[in-house]
């Protein structure tokens, strides 16, 4: 028991959360209600269930009403201000996340891969960290290098003003500044289906 207390007592929230989530495969599971027969997990987690098919969780939902994106200006990790409106004319993938949020941490590397693959299409990715723990953000990116701007929403005012309730939530904004897609929960952003959607949106811009 002492070992357990030491084990769980000081882990970062994300590690513990993940650990707790992964306990499903090892702990005796009490199934109440309709059982999920296999280890079907959410989002990007390992899937071994019959219902999970490759690439089937990479949907981007069409944003209801496709409203104009609310403009904001936020500093990046170096303090340089970024205004959303300045990216008008490009497709923007706007991701709200936090270091302590496991699905957020999981999808960030895939965003970097997508960013690199979509360079020719000039798709911009902006990752907005909700909360002001800049040191923890720097620590995170010591392990996962990204080259797209990471912005800090210190007081979470922007996150609360946008049409979202949980982390991660990601919006895809078209070149005219309208929110066209939304994804609640993590995605693999370099999955072919998502890359194709973003490229199609960028090509629409070129044709206009």
């Amino acid at each position: 028991m002492r070992r357990i207390r030491l084990s769980v007592g000081f882990g970062i929230g994300a590690a513990l959360w993940l650990w707790a989530a992964q306990m499903g495969g090892t702990a005796a599971a009490e199934i109440a209600g309709a059982e999920i027969g296999n280890d079907v997990q959410f989002g990007n987690e390992t899937k071994s269930g019959k219902e999970a098919k490759a690439g089937d969780e990479q949907l981007l939902s069409v944003m209801p009403g496709q409203p104009q994106a609310l403009d904001f200006t936020l500093p990046d990790l170096d303090g340089k201000p970024h205004r959303l409106r300045d990216y008008r004319g490009q497709v923007v993938v706007l991701n709200f996340w936090a270091t302590w949020c496991p699905p957020c941490r999981h999808e960030i590397p895939s965003m970097q891969r997508a960013f690199e693959k979509l360079k020719a299409d000039k798709v911009m990715i902006l990752a907005v960290h909700v909360g002001g723990s800049v040191d923890k953000v720097w620590d995170f990116f010591a392990d996962y290098e990204v080259t797209f701007p990471v912005l800090i929403d210190k007081h979470s005012k922007i996150a609360k003003a946008w049409p979202m309730q949980g982390l991660p939530t990601t919006f895809v904004i078209d070149p005219s500044g309208r929110i066209v897609y939304r994804a609640i929960g993590g995605r693999d952003w370099d999955a072919p289906q998502i890359l194709k959607s973003l490229q199609a949106l960028a090509q629409t811009r070129r044709r206009q």
Binding site: V8, G24, A29
Partner: peptide, 17 residues
Amino acid sequence: AQAQQVSGVGPISRYQG
């Protein structure tokens, strides 16, 4: 601890439908 199947957290309840 995970590998050792520790106790200390509750059982998992799942529902799908």
